[in-house]
Amino acid sequence: MTSKSRIEIGDGRTHIVSKLMRQSLVDRRTVATTASEHEFQILPDVTLVSLGGHSIFDRGKEALVPLAAELAEIRYHHKIVLGVGGGTRVRHTVAIALDLGLPTGGIAQLVGAMEEANAVFLNALLAKHGSIVMQREHFWELPLYLESGMLPIVISTPPYHFWEPPPEDGPLPAHGSDFGLFIHAEVLGMQNLIFVKDEDGLYDRDPKKDKGAKLIPRITLPELLKKMPEDLILDRQLFEAWRTARHIRRVQIINGLRRGELARALAGEDVGTVIVKTDAPAKSKSSDTHDTHETENAEKVNPR
């Protein structure tokens, strides 16, 4: 270490010179100086695919087996990470936890445990195709799995666990599985996130309650925030967090009960509902480059 990169003060201590030296990290002016347009993206060419717990897993063999077969076919053509929700199993567990009077952090910890069961179920269906369940918070292992040609499966609960922030109303954790996978993708620098549900996409009203509900095929985040539907198919916190997110550019909601729709979504087609961060052309020069890299990487991972 050179003398220019350190200073010595009278009490015998040596300080490393940096722009945060002797600064308070709760000072807004100091924090503002740390913003960067060149934040490193760990997995920019990977798509996170979320399989809904209630919408897919709870339907059992009828929904999950065909979807697993489709994943087995397309996993060699795209770099993907699979995320799973807990579904009804989570609801039952939370009901018992509430009856016992467990705190919010304890409930959040149990939710993750229930989702791990669905991850194991999915892994059993895809094991012969190279799937592997990532242990909780072992995010640093994901690049190794992907470069080794594996298909990682992660749980969707945000990794707050015992440190889940106190909710505004009641003891239920405020951060759901959709939000958890969004944060997962954002931290790893992914740009695309696909939610596999049992509806054709996002509607202006709940189609299960209102037959006159209209599908929203494509919308920008600012437009959606201005006129947010009362009934949402995704966690409301996801859209609030997306305001200041740095990496996620596109969120897509598709119907996993329609065979082939996931393959089309991964190929870049505007099926279901497409929500984009800003109003940009559906196919840009950057997306062409991304598609090229994706194909090259897929061939590098597994030439089959």
Rank of each mutant, 00 (worst) to 15 (best):
K227H: 10
R249C: 08
D235I: 00
T2E: 14
K283N: 14
L232Y: 00
I219G: 03
A72I: 06
Q135R: 11
H138Q: 14
S3W: 05
E116F: 10
V26A: 12
T273K: 01
R243A: 04
E230P: 00
D291L: 06
A69E: 15
I56Y: 08
I7Y: 11
P207Y: 00
L262N: 03
E73Q: 13
A32P: 00
V154W: 08
R13M: 06
A263W: 06
W163P: 05
M150D: 11
M190Y: 03
L71T: 11
R75K: 10
H54D: 15
M228A: 08
P167K: 01
L142P: 03
G83S: 15
R75W: 06
D210Y: 09
E269P: 01
A245I: 03
A263V: 04
L266G: 01
R91V: 05
I194P: 00
L71Y: 08
G83M: 07
E39M: 12
T244Y: 11
E299M: 14
I107P: 05
R258L: 14
P217I: 09
A185D: 07
V301N: 15
I132K: 01
I80Q: 06
S148N: 10
H161W: 08
R250T: 11
L225V: 01
F179L: 09
G212A: 04
H92W: 12
I233A: 06
H175G: 06
P207H: 08
I233C: 03
T157R: 09
T273N: 03
G85N: 11
V90C: 13
Y145L: 07
A32W: 06
G268Y: 02
D204W: 05
A265C: 09
P66W: 05
R243I: 07
R250W: 08
K283Y: 12
V17D: 09
H77Q: 15
K277Y: 10
T157E: 11
G180H: 06
I16V: 12
V49D: 12
Y76F: 12
L102K: 10
T88P: 14
V120S: 09
G268W: 05
A108Y: 01
S287E: 10
A95N: 14
L151E: 04
A280C: 09
H15V: 12
V187S: 09
N297C: 07
R91H: 15
T33S: 13
F57A: 14
R259S: 15
D198Y: 05
V17A: 06
A97W: 04
V65T: 12
E199K: 10
I107K: 02
V271P: 01
L188V: 01
F182G: 01
K226M: 12
I248K: 06
D200S: 10
G53T: 01
P207K: 05
A68R: 01
H54M: 14
D178G: 00
A265T: 10
T93E: 15
H247F: 11
G130Y: 00
D58K: 09
S5E: 14
F139M: 13
L151T: 07
G189L: 03
G176L: 05
T278Q: 14
F195K: 02
A95D: 15
A267G: 09
I96P: 04
K79D: 15
